[in-house]
Amino acid sequence: MTSVASEQSTPARGRQRVIESALAQFAEFGVEGTSLQMIADAMGVTKAAVYYHFKTKDEIVLAVVAPALGQLREILDHAEVQRTQAARTRTFLTGFVHLVVGHRELLTLLYDDVAVLRTLRRHLPDFHDYERRIPVAVVGAGAEPGRRVAAAVALTGIVAAAGSPEFTALGDADLEGHLLDAGLRLITPRRRSRP
């Protein structure tokens, strides 16, 4: 097993190794089913080496999701400055699909594991801001319930489809195109035909 001293020689790399190992363990066993010892064992280091970088599992969860949350904030910021709701919807969905395809394992975990959401809500005061801003970016403030439900189905479905083994043979660009088309079809209001 690697000692604390050797992990300390490259702190940034050691920290990144913990994050990568934790994500793999979380994906397989869930956050609550993963211990710091399991993360250390998967890395081939001592538990003390993990503690050198992170004092709690919650700290690891926050570090695992931080890059994706940063990208999500940028996507929201960019979508919110668009002039029309249609442009905001397309801008957000395009960015969201790209984010999900680039971080399949992480976003599936974020959507599927209630322990992750609980950790984010407990430790990130501005996480509620994401939860408020996303539906507004997708369907607008005050959207009727049917459109809000469609948005929730679309976003959850995008994450589920991106993480599905059924679509691993598709290239990223093809998968992104299909996911965006499906999301827009679900969210975009249908024109009612005249009787």
Rank of each mutant, 00 (worst) to 15 (best):
T46N: 06
H98D: 15
D174F: 07
F96S: 05
R190F: 04
I75D: 03
A143G: 04
Q71A: 15
H178N: 11
G183L: 03
A63E: 00
A42T: 07
F26N: 12
M43C: 06
A27P: 08
H178F: 10
A151I: 02
A143V: 05
I75T: 14
F54L: 03
V116K: 06
A79M: 11
I158G: 00
E105S: 13
F92S: 07
L93Y: 08
H123K: 12
A154Q: 04
S21M: 02
L180P: 13
R90P: 01
L76V: 10
L184N: 01
A27S: 11
P189Q: 09
V65W: 04
M38Q: 15
L179T: 02
T108D: 09
A68L: 06
G30W: 00
T46V: 05
G44A: 02
V45Y: 07
I19Y: 09
L120K: 04
V4S: 11
L180T: 10
A161R: 13
P67L: 15
V153G: 06
Q82V: 04
R192P: 01
E7A: 06
A141W: 01
T108W: 12
I39G: 00
G30M: 04
G33P: 14
D174T: 10
F92A: 08
L99A: 02
A48Q: 13
V100R: 05
L93Q: 05
R122C: 10
S21I: 02
A154L: 07
I60M: 06
R88H: 06
H178Q: 10
T2P: 09
V31N: 02
E28I: 06
T168Q: 08
G177S: 15
A169Q: 08
R13N: 08
A24K: 10
P189C: 13
H53T: 03
V61E: 01
T108L: 09
T108P: 03
R90G: 03
L106Q: 07
H123L: 10
H178W: 12
P145K: 08
R133L: 11
D129A: 15
L72T: 11
A173N: 09
L180D: 03
R121S: 13
E59A: 14
M1D: 04
R190W: 07
R191I: 05
T94P: 09
R121E: 13
P165L: 11
E7N: 04
R90Y: 08
D113I: 02
D172K: 15
H123R: 14
V45F: 09
A162V: 11
E7L: 01
R192S: 12
V153Q: 12
M38H: 09
G177V: 10
V138I: 14
V4K: 09
Y130N: 06
H103L: 05
A12G: 10
V114Y: 12
V50G: 02
L36Q: 10
T188S: 14
T188L: 12
L23P: 08
I158R: 01
A24W: 03
Y52T: 01
E131C: 10
F26K: 05
D77I: 04
T10D: 02
A137G: 08
V64M: 03
A49F: 00
H78E: 14
T188Q: 12
L186S: 11
E80W: 12
L23S: 01
P165Q: 12
I19P: 03
S193A: 12
L184R: 02
P11S: 01
T188W: 08
A152W: 05
R148S: 06
K47L: 07
E144P: 03
A151C: 06
L76N: 01
L76Y: 02
